[in-house]
Design a protein around this nucleic acid. Structure first.
Lengths: 130, 130
DNA sequence: AAATCATATTCCTATATGGGTATATGTCAA
DNA sequence: TTGACATATACCCATATAGGAATATGATTT
C-alpha cells in the first residue's frame, strides 16, 4: 500500500506546507484564487489543485462571485488536529521541572544510554537493485 | 516533484494514522518495540519503520535496555503542530455567535451561492490516457 | 561458539502525489 | 456571438511511500 491520500483527512491535507500557507492566508477573509496566486507566488494550477484538496477534506469553503471563486478557511476542520496535539500539551507543560534538574546538573547525559542521533543506513532506502 | 518525505517534518510524520497511534501509546511511558507490536496489532517491521520515521523528525526518543529498545514520545516535537493549529482556535471559539444567528434563522443557506459539496471530476485523476 | 530473543533493514511493488504545461470550462463584456 | 478574464482539469513524470516477506544485526544466555 502506498501513502494515504492527501484527501483522506485533515492531517494528510495540512502536511503540505503550501496548503498551510494558503490556509493561513485565507483564514481572516475569503479571497479569490488569483489573489492567492499573486500573494503566495505559486502557479495558478497549483493553487487550484491545493484548494481542491482542502475543499475535499472540508478545510475550506467556496463561494462564487461572478467569474471568481472566493475561498476561505473553515477553521472548524482544524479542530481535530488541535485536539490531538492538545493531548500532548500536558507533557511539555510539565517539562519545566526537567529543565530545572538540568540546570542543576543533576545527571550526566553521556553517562547513560540515552540516545537521540539517528544511525546512518547503509543504503539510502531508495529500493532498486538489479 | 512528488510528495514531501514523511521525514521532512512533524506535520508529514504524523499524517500517518498508525504513527499517531504509536505516539499516543508511548506518550506516558517508554515501551519496547514488541509491546507496541502486540498492543497495536501491527507487524514488527512496520512498527520499526514507523519508529524510524518518528525518530528522524525527533518525535520519539530511544534508549537501549539489553536487547530491547525502549521508545518514548517526545511531546516537545509536537509543539509546532499545536501552535500552528492554535492560531486558528480563535476562529472556532468565535463561532458561537454564528451558531446563534443560525438558530434564529437569520439567513437561508440555500438562497446564496455558499457551497460545500465537491463537484465530481470526469476522470478520477489517475493519470493515464493511452 | 551456538542457539535464541528483540529489532532493524533490505527488496519489491502498487499507489498517490506535486509541479509544469496545455487546455477545458464558466462567466461577463462588447 | 466573439473575446477576454478567472479557474479548474488533463497529462506526463520523478519520487516517496507503506505493507509484506525474508533476512541481517545486536545482545544475552547456555
Amino acid at each position: 500500500m502506498a501513502r494515504a491520500a492527501t484527501t483522506s483527512d485533515a492531517f494528510n491535507a495540512v502536511a503540505e506546507p503550501r496548503r498551510r500557507e494558503i490556509l493561513n492566508f485565507i483564514a481572516l477573509q475569503e479571497r479569490p484564487v488569483g489573489e492567492i496566486v499573486d500573494s503566495l507566488g505559486m502557479e495558478q494550477p497549483s493553487v487550484s489543485k491545493h484548494l481542491r484538496v482542502l475543499l475535499e477534506v472540508g478545510l475550506v469553503n467556496v463561494r462564487r462571485d461572478g467569474r471568481r471563486m472566493l475561498y476561505r478557511t473553515n477553521a472548524e476542520a482544524i479542530r481535530p488536529l488541535h485536539e490531538w496535539t492538545e493531548t500532548f500539551a500536558r507533557y511539555w507543560r510539565h517539562q519545566l521541572s526537567r529543565v530545572k534538574e538540568r540546570a542543576e546538573g543533576k545527571s550526566n547525559p553521556s553517562n547513560d544510554s540515552e540516545r537521540d542521533f539517528i544511525p546512518r543506513r547503509k543504503d539510502d532506502y531508495g529500493g532498486s537493485k538489479n
